[in-house]
Amino acid sequence: MVSKDEIKHLGWLSRLELTTEELDRYVSQIDEIVRYFDKLDTIPLSESEWTYSTKEVSELREDANRVFKWEKLQSLKNRKDGFIKGPKMS
C-alpha cells in the first residue's frame, strides 16, 4: 500500500510541492497503478535467471567541446551582465 508519507517524500525529492488535495488524489491513483505493476512479480523466473540486454551504441562521438554562440541563447529570460541568474544556494 502506497502511503501519504511516501508520496510526499517523493514529491519533495522531485521538487514538487503537492497541495493536500493533490496528495490525497495521487496517493489513491498511484496506489492503484503500482498495484497493477505488481503483475511484474508474477514473471516465472528465479533470481539467478534475471537477465536483460541493453541496446548497443556502436561508436560514440568524440567528446569534444562545441562552442555555442551567446547570440543563440538570446531567448534566455534570466540574464544579467553576460551571466545566467539563478536562485541562492541557501
Partner: peptide, 24 residues
C-alpha cells in the same frame, strides 16, 4: 527555469523554494 523557461526572476529566492514554485 534557469536555462529555459518563462519569465520568473530568481533573485531573492532560496533555490528549493524557487524550483518548487517553478515546477508547480
Amino acid at each position: 527555469n534557469i536555462r529555459y523557461g518563462f519569465e520568473y526572476d530568481p533573485e531573492g529566492y532560496e533555490w528549493n523554494t524557487y524550483f518548487s514554485n517553478v515546477r508547480n
